[in-house]
């Protein structure tokens, strides 16, 4: 369970988060939407403990994380899977080694099991046959898919996806969202997807959160979001607003 209470964050004089509060229940898959630069990724990094808020509290499964030290955060993060916007694959490792990294370093599984699981997940994201390639030898979309495989392979309890479908073609976007949904259903994980993949994402989540001017501006179902008459939401959805 993720609970955020009134967090504020500024970078220099720029206020990015201005009193964000939200709660995501165990097993819920939530889409976080908002314009570019609205603070979606910053919010996600706060939840993951990569950034500390100027004020406010963040609870992960009941543990308040803003005051934890490095060692305590390491323990909390063992529950996490995180997909970065740019993939964040290790340049010096092949795609296979990248996906295997959390299994060998974090879970310390036997070699045969690692190979089996890595090949399975690479197959799921459509990367069979590219195991030995390095990140510099593949496209941005392939990097994103390998990163997704790496983040899901440990079967985390909490999954944070930062724009999982950006840079992918529509068909691949759909299959990635399907994969996220199926892993979510199978593991009952708690997840937040930061995305611009509208309207595809409406089919894969039951709840939409929209961030605007550093606050949660909308919190409701995809249907309510689509039917909202709020000008800011209409504008975000790309429809003409007549005052």
């Amino acid at each position: 369970m993720i609970k955020i209470e009134d967090i504020h964050k500024s970078f220099g004089r720029t206020k990015v988060l201005n009193g964000v509060s939200l709660e995501v229940k165990q097993g819920e898959l939530v889409a976080l939407v908002g314009g570019s630069g609205s603070g979606k990724s910053v919010l996600l990094k706060h939840i993951a403990g990569l950034l500390r808020p100027d004020s406010g509290f963040i609870y992960i499964n009941g543990t308040e994380i803003t005051g934890l030290n490095k060692r305590q955060l390491e323990l909390v993060r063992k529950e996490f899977g995180f997909l970065f916007q740019g993939g964040a694959l290790f340049d010096s490792l092949t795609l296979f080694e990248n996906v295997a990294f959390p299994l060998t370093e974090k879970l310390r599984l036997p070699k045969e099991e690692v190979t089996q699981r890595v090949l399975h997940y690479l197959d799921l994201v459509g990367l069979s046959g590219s195991e030995e390639k390095y990140p510099s030898q593949v496209s941005g979309g392939m990097i994103k898919r390998a990163a997704l495989a790496r983040s899901l392979i440990t079967e985390p309890k909490i999954m944070l996806f930062d724009e999982p479908t950006t840079g992918l073609d529509p068909q691949m976007s759909l299959s990635i969202l399907n994969l996220i949904r199926s892993v979510h259903d199978r593991l009952n994980l708690t997840g937040i997807i930061v995305t611009h993949a509208i309207p595809s994402v409406f089919k894969f989540t039951n709840r939409i959160l929209m961030i605007y001017e550093g606050r949660i501006y909308f919190d409701g179902s995809p249907e309510e979001f689509k039917r909202s008459e709020e000008p800011i939401i209409r504008r975000f959805l790309g429809e003409e607003v007549l005052d």
Partner: peptide
């Protein structure tokens, strides 16, 4: 430095590794 700006260090931290 490149690992830092491309979030590779964050990725290590988020795996619960040092």
């Amino acid at each position: 430095g490149i690992m830092r700006i491309s979030e590779q260090i964050d990725a290590i931290e988020l795996m619960g590794l040092n």
